[in-house]
């Protein structure tokens, strides 16, 4: 207990760091995932190829490797940004591949006739997707997207290895101060639980509200 009360500020900073990384990266992942899912079902072949390559590259690269590529690679091309931003980029792009696939599986649950009916009425591809297909797809993808965002929250721990302030990274300082490693980690785990359970609860509410009523 003492480790928490003595170092509340340090824990708090780490906790907020993880929350920030999670929120920003989630927003980026959702936006990019949505865009890539649209690409993957687009009538234009080159869009489909782009979406497919995006998913293949990002989903199949270890996240740590991706962090190295972004944090060490991009500055070589003259793109120098704060490490926090790089971390959000890496996490967001990585997770967007999973969001894209979850959305796409949702799109596939919507009967083909729905899109055909919309198109036969003269609606464009984006109108069809936006007003007919995705609202129905959305209902069935709430649970898998929730899981993906929870995974993102936990994956943000990798950013700590790249000197971004986040929850897991606090153990280094606390360990140097001589606190029990077990209790240090217990409180870190509690911090992650607070974040992930909040995400679970949020998605539970979304599912209650919007989920498919069968």
């Amino acid at each position: 207990m003492k480790v928490l009360t003595d170092n509340f500020a340090l824990y708090g900073k780490g906790f907020l760091g993880t929350v920030e990384l999670t929120v920003y990266a989630s927003v980026l992942a959702l936006v990019l995932g949505f865009l890539m899912a649209s690409f993957r079902v687009a009538p234009v072949g080159s869009f489909r190829v782009f979406g497919t390559v995006w998913v293949a590259v990002l989903r199949n690269t270890p996240l740590t490797l991706l962090f190295f590529a972004v944090l060490l690679g991009l500055p070589r091309f003259g793109l120098v940004l704060p490490f926090e931003v790089f971390a959000v980029l890496a996490l967001g792009c990585y997770t967007s591949a999973f969001i894209c696939e979850a959305l796409r599986s949702g799109i596939n649950t919507v009967p083909k006739g729905q899109g055909e009916a919309a198109r036969s009425l003269g609606m464009t591809f984006s109108q069809t997707l936006g007003t007919v297909v995705l609202p129905q797809a959305f209902r069935s993808v709430i649970p898998p997207i929730g899981s993906t965002i929870i995974a993102l929250a936990k994956n943000s721990a990798i950013a700590g290895a790249f000197s971004v302030t986040e929850l897991l990274g606090t153990y280094k300082s606390l360990n140097e101060l001589g606190y029990s490693i077990i209790w240090t980690f217990v409180w870190i785990a509690v911090g992650y639980l607070i974040i992930t359970l909040t995400i679970s609860a949020l998605f539970h509410v979304l599912e209650k509200r919007w989920g498919v009523a069968r």
Binding site: G113, Q114, A117, A118, Q136
Partner: peptide
């Protein structure tokens, strides 16, 4: 060109 389908295809939502 109006179209009517065998499976109706009304927007379910």
């Amino acid at each position: 060109v109006g179209m009517v389908f065998q499976s109706f295809n009304l927007f379910a939502h």
